[in-house]
């Protein structure tokens, strides 16, 4: 779900193009836009407080096989939420689980991890190496 929540519509459609068609579905709820009130912690680790809201889109579908798939993802993209819910439902189907994991989830996870690593590497490049008198003398 964390991987699907971070995937763009282009990512999802691209990955789905190389996997078997998702099972037929009926929409039970949504896709609907709404808000999540984001909570922080006082002092970073204390009691909660309401920081502010964020937009989210959620969707629930049921496949012909009876699997119910849910998605709630940041932002306002109904098409994304619908696909994520359909993938969530299909993942519960033994016939689709391994295929989708390999064709959709794993490659997207890899791509997202690479983006995170790149950010981390950029941050690492801005890490300060102090030259103090002591180290210069040594």
């Amino acid at each position: 779900m964390a991987v699907l929540a971070r995937a763009s519509l282009a990512d999802l459609t691209e990955r789905l193009a190389s996997s078997p068609a998702l099972p037929d579905h009926v929409v039970l709820r949504g896709p609907e836009e709404g808000l999540v009130m984001v909570r922080g912690r006082i002092g970073g680790g204390g009691g909660g407080f309401n920081l502010g809201e964020m937009t989210v889109t959620r969707c629930t579908v049921r496949t012909r096989g009876g699997q119910v798939g849910h998605a709630t993802i940041a932002g306002r993209n109904g098409a994304c939420a619908l696909l994520a819910a359909r993938i969530d439902a299909a993942l519960q189907d033994a016939g689709f689980h391994d295929i989708l994991l390999a064709a959709v989830i794993a490659p997207l996870a890899l791509r997202q991890e690479a983006a995170r690593t790149q950010q981390a590497a950029r941050a690492a490049a801005t890490k300060v190496d102090f030259f103090t008198l002591q180290t210069m003398r040594a």
């Binding site: 009926v26 929409v27 039970l28 709820r29 629930t60 049921r62 009876g66 119910v68």
Partner: peptide
């Protein structure tokens, strides 16, 4: 499971 039944077709 009773959530298998939808709600409003056009919620708004």
């Amino acid at each position: 499971m009773s959530i298998a039944l939808p709600g409003f077709a056009n919620p708004v």
